Simulated assay, not measured.
Amino acid sequence: MTTTIPVAGGAFAPYEVVVGRGLLKAAGAEVAALKPTRAFIVSDETVAAIHGETVRASLAAAGLATGIVTVPAGEASKSFEQLEAVLDRLLAKGLDRKSMVVALGGGVVGDLAGLAAALFMRGVDFVQIPTTLLAQVDSSVGGKTAIDTPRGKNLIGAFHQPRRVLADIEALATLPVRQVRSGWAEVLKHGLICDAAFFDWLGNEGAAGAQGDPDALERAVIRSVEIKARIVGEDEKEAGRRALLNLGHTFGHALEAELAFDETLTHGEAVALGCAMAFRYSARQGLCPAAEAERAEAGIRAAGLPTRLSDVEHGFAADALIARMAGDKKAEGRRLTLILARAVGDAFTDKNVDAETMRAFLIEEGAA
């Protein structure tokens, strides 16, 4: 049984997110229905070894000429070097403007392959087949594609919506627990921004999802995609409401950049810590009750995710973090832009956060 969630907005062609089990084996029929001339898989070495042949065989069985290109696993592959390598491979294989890119993997692959599709022949269609929880609930939906630079995360990219997203819950069974928890951070984020009841479910009946329970995961993925689809449909290019999906990300991206995107923090762990910090900052500024910040932090920590700078085995300098935050792509005129909260389920955008106030907060949080 599958659940189909439409993603539609006035500025882009509508598409569907299909959530279910066994979708990797059915990928060929799903992709062939979109009528590409060819379908070329982009994956990373780890995912390709596990799922690459299943998807390749399914595409071939559906009558599609196909192939696969892999990049090294990890955030470092979101680079100009790997983007050029993928584009060169697509050109070498003779793909044309009616060909399709199939992104098979987590958020790194989805971002890289999506950007390659946006650039190739000035834009070709692509399908997202996310194999991590984080990618299924967040990065595969909404058309954000990007690579990183030493100056920050996701600063070079394009909006390029997929033609379809296939979220196979069975693929999550191969993930290490840390990767499931990392994705769970983005699930929690959706509750924190606009659905308090969902956030509470995640901490109670749904808590088994953070440990890999497939039924809880399926419900969490469906609800998360519903939330994101509605927001993306209202605001594709983050001119307004879509910015709320960045709760925790301004802090999180700054932490990741200071760690040079190493394995000290996964993206989801950085977002979880960032969400907790955003709620505490909101409470300290009198924007939300302290009890709501404690409620958010407790829910995040209960999932085994970090909530304090002291949870990270690395020292951070307040000025360095502020510089990263000021250079974030959401910043305007070098002012600090943060997603803050009035309560669990009630987030808002503040585009004029005072740097000195933030510095004092970061020092209170444990930064030097």
Rank of each mutant, 00 (worst) to 15 (best):
L133Y: 07
E238C: 00
T266I: 09
A260W: 04
V312L: 00
E81Q: 15
D346I: 08
E236C: 02
L265M: 07
D125H: 14
G123H: 01
K189T: 09
P289G: 04
F261A: 08
A33V: 13
A207F: 10
L259T: 01
A283M: 08
L91F: 15
G94Y: 04
A57H: 14
V108P: 06
V312N: 08
T145L: 02
D235V: 02
G114R: 02
S310D: 14
D138T: 06
A173H: 13
A117T: 06
Q128L: 13
R219G: 10
V312S: 10
R181S: 01
M277S: 12
R178W: 03
I169P: 00
S282A: 13
G110Q: 06
F40V: 14
F12W: 06
D195E: 06
L90Y: 14
Y281R: 05
E238Q: 03
F251V: 05
V137T: 00
R301F: 10
L119H: 09
G107I: 00
S182R: 02
A254V: 07
M1E: 14
V86P: 05
V101C: 15
P72N: 11
T3Y: 10
V19D: 14
I227C: 07
F199V: 01
P130D: 00
E30L: 13
A11H: 10
I322T: 13
C288T: 00
V221W: 13
A48G: 11
V312C: 05
E365Y: 09
G22R: 05
G209D: 02
G183A: 06
L287N: 05
A146R: 12
V221Y: 11
D328M: 11
L362Y: 12
A343N: 14
L64G: 07
R56K: 13
P72V: 12
G286P: 04
F40N: 10
L112K: 02
V17I: 04
E45A: 15
A171C: 06
L23K: 09
G252A: 12
E205Y: 10
V69E: 15
A118T: 01
G191I: 00
A61F: 11
G191F: 01
S43E: 05
L133T: 04
P36N: 15
R230P: 00
L115F: 11
A73K: 12
A291S: 14
Q136W: 13
A343M: 09
I231D: 07
L287A: 10
S140F: 03
F199K: 04
I231N: 04
Q136H: 09
A367Y: 01
L24C: 10
R151M: 14
V180S: 08
G110L: 03
A347P: 06
A272R: 03
G22Q: 03
I231S: 02
L175Q: 05
K237I: 08
G248F: 03
L91R: 15
A355V: 11
L273I: 05
A167Q: 01
A290R: 15
G9L: 04
G74R: 02
V344M: 08
R280H: 07
L255S: 02
R163E: 11
I339K: 04
T357L: 15
G274T: 07
P72T: 09
V18I: 15
A62L: 06
A260N: 12
A323I: 11
M277G: 08
D354Q: 15
A272Q: 00
R163H: 04
A331M: 03
